[in-house]
Design a protein around this nucleic acid. Structure first.
Length: 915
RNA sequence: GGGCGCUUAGCUCAGUUGGUAGAGCAUCGCCCUUACAAGGCGAGGGUCACAAGUUCAAGUCUUGUAGCGCCCA
């Protein structure tokens, strides 16, 4: 084996090997009685792998590899999402660079361009997933616009339409004027921005009075159809029923009373614009007001109202309108005002409420069973508190606007005849059959919201509506691993559609992960320039290239400078290559519940070191195998039995943590076992054992047995290095092994749990630690050979001592280890305690007397402190009578042993003082 | 305004039926001891945000306060 662990080579080797041997295939273990399946949340086909993906994919891969190695038939279903708006925008902006718009190209050619783009550039993320070692079944890879999936989409649409759960209607929707399409509530992000409150005077018809209305959107006045006041507002009751002359137009609009008006806000008068505000729309319906749409689909003033503002953008028109009102003395005042501004999550454009014909899913009848499924435990949120968020949203859910006025996506399977009659069908031919021969039909221009097809993902990928073997085998899936940010977009909709169309939940568990943030706890984003690319953590990147990546395409030079400073501060040396396994281990170790993750590079370095440690431990083991066969029946020494016993505990814990989705705890248990038990203790103990012919065979057998189980246990987390170690071990033993991936996951063997050996090794460790402490605190060189006496030992001490004298001598560099009878006066020594037994290291020129006195003082101080605590507890009658017997007993034992230690050390101290 | 979470060692975080506070990194000693200096051995460091309550016993349960964060309106 190479002296240093080299992740790059190993990873390349097994990436190729696993795929060549088809080991990710869901056809493996086909005869197993159990199946396990996970649906990969399909990333956008335009996307590249970010830290969030890498994190979630690691978790899914750990679960998949674990269950696969338990012999289950396992499917991790990969694929990508066509991401309607996002993808269309990418290709549009590419075309725009050549001065081509999608409209000059036409629908058909434009869509073809997107398909071309997809086949050329759409595979980025799936290639990156391979770097991570994600064991998805690549043969089953799907795309949301594949034929089968598109068939499923139409099938669902038609059925919902026929059941009255999909309808078309003219409604006020969120309109993105840049994309010129409707978007759903979820795609609108409202943020507080600084604006103004304009107070405008509306003259009362045939009167000298004016009403002052306050608004944040003055330009919408062109579309006002009323002014509303509260019915109990004494200031205005005399005006209700009259009209005002709407300025800048020749219209008169009524003054109405509605209790929705907040008397305290502004002047207590509100202008009502039903076509351009959601609240006003509702009020307009109550009062039968005219709905006057004053905007074009790109948010310019249209010609529905005669004015000089036609064709101006709404914000340009605003300026003119304010100016003109002011000139006419109709502007009362302008106040600064903070308001919530809705913006499109893709374009960042101000979203307009806009009245158009759209398709909707009637959600209430679908939501009810979806809520019940979580309430009755068919679906579990992990951690559970997310179910509250889910209920909260589901209880307030509104109908879902599913039509989008873009070209990339599933076209709505609806056709219209000349009279606007709707025919919903699977194809034009079937629509024609419905309409009758000779009726001219045109298909709806719109496509479906991308999330419509995503909602079908758990069953459409398995071949639904056909009753395929995959569907019955793998549906419902076992767990969905995803972020909280798409609970509403996606998770809830999968549950609704899954229940509706398969009659079963799409997954049993929903594991909601935290968000990966940067080292400062900031959300990673391109605009902030704090993004880490998982691939850069694997391969490493220079400071220069990292900075280039982060500032590429920066609009503001100021921002670029800030990013430079930030990057310099954190990554002045760039990022070293940590390898995939170290990155994966980090994600797993950080995956605790209910908390976002501040990503700390030092943790990655730590786990890279762990991989290196494991690597070197393996080198040690292989080095001592002599390339011979292993005698699995050899007699085992106490340390051999001990490490095997510890291993059983570890396996039990790992199993539990995995079933609780506590991968962080799983990794912690394994980390500690490998480093601190196996390497720090067992490997050190094995050195003298290997040198002794009586123990050699047993120790060899144990070294390799434990190592083999270690790599198998760790394989789901760090698959590459463990495969390599496994192979090297087998090669050394001349065994022809299968891939480690196919090895069964180790299970606890209760007959190997031996409390007695654990107690003996605990004794040995206390002994060794005590002497090491003396050596270190007395500044005795590690290479200096020592003499050692023991005194005041009981029979069990004596037995342990005889058993382990060789190990003690070897590990502590002790040349003479002698028992002293209690009555014998020991030479001046530094003392350590193992239970009641004294371990004495004679001073004999090695040790400074004063130093030892100081050391003993400090120890006694600590012990006395503890003693006081224990005594206080035990003197408390209530504690004695109320606490469980076992707890009281444990406390008594502690007090006794502390007291004994104090007596022993005090005597020792006194003796030193006397000298 | 409603909901959810977080606050534990200098930093990043564990701590699941309440029972003597843990890890990694960082710090300070000593060591290139043939698996590993990406390492070994040893050491220091915490009134578990604050306050009250329940309890024999609270980091852990209850209530309140403060600070931070997220979601919804």
């Amino acid at each position: 084996m190479e002296k240093t662990y080299n992740p790059e080579q190993i990873e390349a080797k097994y990436r190729a090997l696993w795929e060549d041997k088809n080991l990710f295939s869901s056809n493996l273990n086909a005869s197993s009685s159990e199946a396990y399946s996970i649906m990969l949340p399909p990333p956008n086909v335009t996307g590249s792998l970010h830290m969030g993906h890498a994190f979630q994919h690691t978790i899914m891969d750990v679960l998949t590899r674990y269950h696969r190695s338990q012999g289950k038939q396992t499917l991790w279903q990969p694929g990508t999402d066509h991401a309607g708006i996002a993808t269309q925008m990418v290709v549009e902006s590419q075309l725009l660079a050549n001065n081509i718009t999608r409209h000059t190209l036409g629908r058909e050619k434009f869509v073809q361009k997107i398909w071309d783009w997809k086949s050329k550039s759409g595979g980025t993320i799936t290639q990156q997933m391979r770097r991570l070692g994600a064991s998805v079944d690549w043969e089953k890879e799907r795309f949301t616009m594949d034929k089968g999936l598109s068939d499923a989409v139409r099938r669902v649409f038609i059925q919902l339409y026929n059941e009255g759960l999909i309808y078309r209607g003219k409604r006020l929707v969120n309109w993105d004027p840049v994309l010129r399409t409707a978007v759903s509530d979820l795609e609108v992000v409202s943020t507080e921005e600084q604006g103004s409150l304009w107070h405008m005077r509306y003259p009362i018809t045939d009167s000298n009075e004016v009403m002052v209305v306050a608004t944040t959107r003055p330009e919408t006045m062109l579309g006002d159809s009323a002014v509303a006041v509260h019915s109990k507002d004494a200031r205005y009751t005399h005006l209700i029923g009259k009209t005002v002359d709407l300025p800048l137009t020749d219209r008169k609009i009524p003054i109405i009373a509605d209790d929705y008006v907040d008397m305290e806000f502004g002047t207590g008068c509100v202008k009502i614009t039903p076509a351009h505000d959601f609240n006003d729309y509702e009020m307009g319906k109550r009062h039968n007001l005219a709905i006057i749409n004053i905007l074009t689909d790109d948010a310019k003033i249209n010609d529905s109202v005669k004015s000089r503002y036609i064709n101006m953008d709404r914000f340009v028109a605003r300026k003119h309108i304010i100016k003109d009102l002011d000139a006419q003395g109709l502007l009362e005042k302008i106040e600064p005002h903070k308001l919530m501004v809705p913006r499109g999550d893709r374009t960042h454009a101000v979203i307009e409420p806009y009245l158009t014909d759209q398709w909707f899913v009637k959600i209430a009848p679908l939501a009810k069973p979806a809520v019940d499924a979580v309430k009755n435990g068919d679906i579990r949120f992990i951690p559970n508190n997310w179910s509250k968020t889910y209920y909260n949203w589901m209880d307030n859910i509104e109908d879902w606007c599913i039509s989008r006025q873009i070209w990339w996506g599933h076209r709505i399977p609806a056709w219209y005849d000349a009279n606007g009659k709707i025919y919903v069908a699977d194809s034009q031919a079937q629509a024609q059959a419905q309409a009758g021969e000779g009726v001219a039909l045109t298909q709806d221009e719109d496509v479906l919201d991308t999330w419509f097809s995503s909602a079908l993902w758990p069953f459409s990928t398995l071949g639904w509506p056909a009753k395929t073997p995959e569907l019955s085998r793998f549906y419902p899936t076992n767990v969905l691993v995803t972020g909280f940010d798409i609970i509403f977009f996606w998770v809830a909709r999968m549950i609704m559609f899954g229940l509706k169309f398969t009659g079963d939940v799409p997954f049993k568990d929903i594991y909601i992960t935290g968000l990966i943030r940067d080292g400062q706890g900031q959300k990673m984003s391109k605009s902030k320039g704090n993004v880490l690319d998982p691939i850069d953590l694997i391969d490493g990147i220079s400071f220069k290239n990292l900075l280039k990546k982060r500032t590429q395409g920066m609009m503001q030079p100021k921002m670029a400078e800030k990013i430079k400073q930030q990057t310099q501060k954190e990554f002045s040396q760039g990022i070293p290559a940590f390898g995939t396994d170290a990155l994966r281990f980090t994600f797993v170790a950080l995956s605790s519940f209910g908390r976002d993750i501040k990503f700390d590079l030092k943790r990655v370095a730590g786990y890279r070191n762990f991989c290196n440690k494991l690597w070197n431990a393996s080198r040690f083991v292989i080095m001592h195998l002599d390339g011979e066969t292993i005698d699995t029946n050899a007699t085992l020494s106490t340390p051999d039995k001990w490490i095997l016993s510890r291993l059983q505990e570890v396996k039990t814990k790992v199993k539990k943590h995995l079933s609780d989705y506590r991968l962080d705890l799983m990794s912690q248990v394994l980390y500690e076992f490998v480093w601190h038990d196996y390497c720090d203790w067992y490997l050190e103990l094995s050195k003298p054992l290997l040198a002794d012919d009586n123990n050699k065979l047993g120790t060899q057998a144990t070294l390799i047995k434990v190592l083999n189980e270690i790599v198998t246990l760790l394989h789901p987390i760090i698959p590459f290095i463990t495969e390599e170690i496994f192979e090297q071990c087998n090669a050394t033993l001349g065994k022809n092994s299968r891939s480690l991936m196919c090895e069964p996951y180790p299970t606890p063997e209760s007959q190997l749990v031996l409390p007695d050996t654990t107690a003996e090794i605990k004794w040995l460790q206390t002994f060794i630690l005590g002497v090491r402490q003396i050596r270190s605190q007395m500044n005795i060189s590690p290479s200096k050979m020592l003499n050692c006496f023991v005194q005041d030992f009981n029979t069990s001490d004596e037995c342990y001592l005889d058993n382990n004298a060789g190990l003690i001598k070897f590990l502590l560099k002790v040349q003479n280890l002698n028992k002293l009878a209690p009555e014998i006066d020991a030479p001046e020594s530094a003392t350590a305690l193992v239970g009641d037994m004294k371990v004495l290291i004679p001073l004999a020129g090695l040790i400074d007397k004063e130093q030892e006195i100081g050391r003993l003082h400090k120890k006694l101080q600590k012990l006395n402190q503890q003693k006081t605590q224990f005594e206080a507890k035990l003197n408390n009658q209530k504690f004695i009578s109320n606490a469980p017997q076992a707890i009281v007993e444990a406390e008594r034992t502690r007090l006794t042993s502390t007291q004994n230690a104090i007596v022993d050390l005090s005597a020792q101290l006194e003796k030193m003082n006397r000298l």
